[in-house]
Amino acid sequence: MTDLAVTLLLFFALVSTAIAIALLRSLFAVVMLSGVFSLLAALLFIAMDAVDVAFTEAAVGAGISSVLMLGTIALTARHEMKPKRWSATPLIIVGIIGAFLIYGTLDMPAFGDPNAPVQTYLNPDFIARTPKEIDVPNIVTAVLASYRGFDTMGEVAVVFVAGLGVTMLIGGSGGFLRRRYRETVLSRKDGQA
């Protein structure tokens, strides 16, 4: 009963935050509210006993994303422009897609259903094997780091490439490209002057 009340309250707060984000024009407020949205989502994950996911959501969604959004705002604009005229098309499209998504969830197994495919296929095997083979209390870590170690290495490589890409595009100050730019282009300009 309390579970249901907490979940409903969190969902209500989530939806209110989302509506507020859609309505607000001040991008600073939008960024702050999206941080609130992530924190509420993290709380919801905790209510569903997914602590590892909640942890990531709180750290990445509420922490880093907000900082990066603020950085982006600092480089671009502080306020969203008012649309020239109001149009119903986006609302209708979003409504239809939302209706389809809700329709899709009707086929999904109920939350915590022991007969759901995800609970019957690989999970029992991991739960049975982890204490014998790996002997760490957190099975999530055992799956992530050992049974699926290769996948995780791919994920780290993806994160690595993302960092490289951002650095190459908008670059740190001491980077190779920036230095070459300074040496070639700027010195040429100086020469002309």
């Binding site: 600092a74 050992s146 780290v156 951002v166 100050s173």
Partner: peptide, 26 residues
């Protein structure tokens, strides 16, 4: 093995976050 690879994950993620932050804030 798990401790070492988790350390590798942590160092890379830390580096990427700092790279992105420096990229934007700099």
């Amino acid at each position: 093995g798990i401790i070492v690879i988790e350390l590798g994950v942590g160092i890379t993620v830390f580096g990427v976050m700092m790279a992105i932050y420096y990229g934007f804030a700099g």
